[in-house]
């Protein structure tokens, strides 16, 4: 089973040199630390910053420089800053190459539920619905099961949706999967995790190719 850091490391392997990437809060944000040295990616923060840098030092701290998680950040050399409408124009218009975000549930139709649990207070979807509707490639990172051991990869999402028919790739603590033709297709398994275990913990239809390699780090 992968740690949060290992999931982030595996996510970072998906990026190509020159990609514009939007990373959600949590594990997706960690992926920024594992981008291979030989490639450059530029981070988009949906509050209006393309070219997000590291956290500021005390002397760099600036209340006017924050990321979408409302944390203080810096901008890299060559960054640009713009309005929220411009930011979502580049998201909705398909100009952002990758979006990485977490989810409560994903299903075999590529639907995602990530913002609302009925009965709990709803804080809002923020930019997640725009991001899943607009990015060219979306990677969902999540644990394969919930804390009670129930599958989060399902035939049909049970929670209110964030987007429909938009998820093509999922990286969990157990596996890398794609979503194709109404099924999850097992692409890679975490080191030491068996195909049997993944089958057992996946709720929706799972296609298992003859050869399922272990992830490489």
């Amino acid at each position: 089973m992968l740690s949060r850091e290992q999931i982030a490391m595996r996510v970072a392997q998906e990026f190509k040199d020159g990609d514009y990437v939007n990373l959600g809060i949590g594990i997706p944000t960690l992926a920024a630390s594992y981008v291979p040295d030989d490639i450059s990616v530029m981070l988009q923060s949906e509050n209006g910053l393309l070219g997000m840098g590291r956290y500021p030092t005390e002397s760099e701290l600036d209340a006017d420089m924050i990321n979408a998680g409302k944390e203080t950040v810096t901008a890299i050399t060559g960054a640009s800053i713009f309005s929220s409408a411009e930011s979502f124009a580049m998201i909705r218009g398909g100009h952002v190459d990758f979006t990485v975000l977490g989810a409560f549930e994903v299903d075999v139709s590529g639907n995602i539920a990530s913002w609302m649990i009925p009965g709990k207070l709803v804080k809002g979807m923020g930019g997640a619905m725009d991001l899943v509707a607009g990015a060219k490639n979306i990677i969902v990172t999540m644990t394969h099961t919930d804390k009670h051991g129930n599958p989060k990869l399902l035939s049909e999402c049970t929670l209110p949706l964030t987007g429909v028919n938009c998820i093509t790739r999922i990286i969990t603590d157990l596996a890398v999967l794609s979503v194709e033709n109404g099924a999850f297709v097992l692409q890679e398994r975490a080191p030491g995790v068996s195909v049997e275990e993944i089958k057992e913990k996946t709720g929706g239809k799972l296609v298992v190719p003859e050869n399922v390699p272990e992830m490489k780090f």
């Binding site: 949906e46 929220s84 409408a85 979502f88 979807m125 619905m129 725009d130 509707a133 949706l161 028919n165």
Partner: peptide, 27 residues
């Protein structure tokens, strides 16, 4: 949704009464 909110304001100021977006479809 955040992008829809930004666009609702932009459209309001630009004299566009409504617009179509994929954001939120099916949700």
């Amino acid at each position: 949704p955040q992008g829809t909110l930004a666009e609702k304001m932009r459209a309001g100021g630009a004299g566009i009464p409504a617009f179509y977006t994929a954001t939120g479809y099916g949700t």
